[in-house]
Design a protein around this nucleic acid. Structure first.
Length: 474
DNA sequence: ACTTAAAATG
């Protein structure tokens, strides 16, 4: 196998070729074969570490090869190649993105890092904290972090993000406020933490606080803009629209580039507040449209009663080389449901997997049930649920229930309601739909029972919330 | 020559 020597030399002069080389190695199954035979020529020495580090890094781009990074790591140990400080950050990142990873694989890597004396390396520590948080073990992330004598800014930002993701906002705020050297990433993490935990006002306020910081050179930052705009989109209040408009103005004034993601966030924000004309403007002004930008615009049209235009835009999207994803098809099926285009909707549902390779998720089944149900094909919707490849969840039954309500089919609605009783916990809107069905049929006792059940469940009924309007996928 | 922290559409 002297070819590996050649490969290594080639890598020295053409590092950008790494991905091609890695792809070839994967497809030929080389580095997955038993260790000693396949990679014999690169046993020890500094170039071997470099080679492994590069390959492990390449795993980050090849998502389709699960646990390859861990195999590579095991293999390098088996070869007696010693991992160094460049090894662990990539390894941990790759392992965290691997669905099969668990805290225990992290602990094995962690132990190796300790053995290699890398606990003084900021990069490795930061990656460890991040890894534990990403595989859902906040306790270990916290413990690792707390044991660092002097965590650097990146490690603190990692911890901050971890706390936000796991919903421990109090601890996140405490950490944030203790940081005198917080940077844009720290601010973005907490703004996003507020937003994803439903504290939209706080997210917007923190963004404004950041703007007021005069001594910091304000370079508008894409992640921060996206986070705060999504807070404006999700806040169901007129004030939120004005805040969104302000931020849009801020973007224009500061000549922040209207990237695909910022454009997406703006379209979504205007769409949720019913300003379809602004959505169109932003969509046109966004130069490099991402798939999500198209999705946001298609949903905006569908949501604001322009289903035909939504379907036209979907055609335009497929006509360009972009690949629609599962979100695209939620939007398309929603548009079909609103226009009662049953045949067309069913055709798209069929072709999404056969033609576009997008496997339908629960949401898509919910959309089809909504599509059939709205058009009055209640029996067919029921039949469709029976033939689903997996158990329908509350959102799917809820779509059918909504249709029962619209078409005043108390008998089926009653049956569906009984089905739903099996599925806990109920979404808040469900109680009200059931109540209305019973009330519409004059079954006041049952209706009152539902209202009582809602109160007992302790769920707050969101104001202005309607199961029917929000559609198929609640 | 190889390493760390933030973001979105349903």
């Amino acid at each position: 196998m002297p070819c590996f020597e050649l490969l290594l030399q080639h890598l020295h002069s053409h590092p950008q070729r790494l991905h091609q080389i890695h792809a070839v190695l994967i497809t030929t199954g080389f580095h997955l074969a038993s260790p000693p035979r396949a990679l014999l020529p690169i046993r020890q020495g500094s170039s071997a570490v470099f080679f492994y580090n590069c390959l492990i890094r390449a795993c980050l781009r090849h998502r389709d090869q699960p646990d390859t990074s861990l195999r590579l790591f095991a293999q390098m140990l088996a070869h007696g190649v010693r991992p160094n400080r460049y090894t662990f950050p990539s390894l941990l990142k790759a392992a965290a993105g691997d669905a099969a990873s668990s805290p225990s694989s992290g602990r094995a890597i962690h132990a190796q890092a300790v053995r290699r004396g890398l606990l003084l390396d900021d990069f490795t520590n930061c990656s460890l904290v991040d890894f534990y948080a990403r595989v859902g073990d906040l306790g270990s992330a916290r413990k690792t972090f707390d044991e660092l004598p002097q965590p650097d800014l990146a490690s603190r930002n990692s911890m901050l993000h971890a706390l936000c993701v796991h919903g421990d906002l109090a601890a996140a705020i405490a950490l944030f406020e203790s940081m005198v050297d917080g940077n844009v990433i720290s601010w973005t993490s907490l703004i996003n933490g507020y937003a994803r935990n439903g504290e939209f006002h706080e997210a917007i306020d923190l963004f404004r606080r950041w703007i007021i910081q005069k001594d910091v050179p304000l370079r508008p930052n894409e992640a921060m803009l996206v986070s705060v705009l999504s807070a404006c989109a999700n806040l169901d209040h007129n004030r939120a629209l004005f805040r969104g408009l302000e931020i849009h103005g801020f973007i224009v004034r500061n000549e922040a580039p209207l990237t695909g993601f910022v454009g997406t966030a703006l379209i979504d924000m205007y769409s949720k507040h019913g300003h379809l004309d602004y959505c169109t403007d932003v969509f046109q002004a966004t130069r490099e449209k991402e798939v999500c930008t198209w999705n946001a615009m298609i949903s905006a049209l569908a949501r604001n009663g322009r289903a035909a235009s939504a379907l036209q835009l979907f055609d335009a999207m497929t006509a360009s080389r972009l690949r629609p994803n599962h979100v695209t098809f939620v939007a398309v099926l929603t548009a079909c449901a609103m226009q009662k285009l049953v045949d067309q909707g069913l055709r798209w549902f069929e072709s999404m997997s056969t033609e576009f390779g997008v496997v339908p998720l629960m949401e898509h089944y919910g959309c089809v049930v909504d599509l059939l149900g709205r058009a009055g094909f209640l029996k067919e919707a029921m039949e469709f649920i029976r033939r689903m490849p997996f158990e329908a969840d509350a959102s799917v039954w809820g779509a059918l229930l909504g249709a029962c309500k619209v078409h005043e089919n108390v008998q089926l609605g009653d049956g569906v309601g009984k089905q739903l009783i099996e599925l806990q916990p109920w979404p808040a809107g469900l109680y009200m739909v059931l109540r209305n069905i019973y009330a519409g049929a004059g079954r006041w006792d049952d209706a009152a029972g539902m209202k009582k059940a809602l109160q007992n469940s302790g769920i707050k009924k969101p104001t202005g919330y309607s199961w029917i309007v929000s559609g198929d996928c609640v």
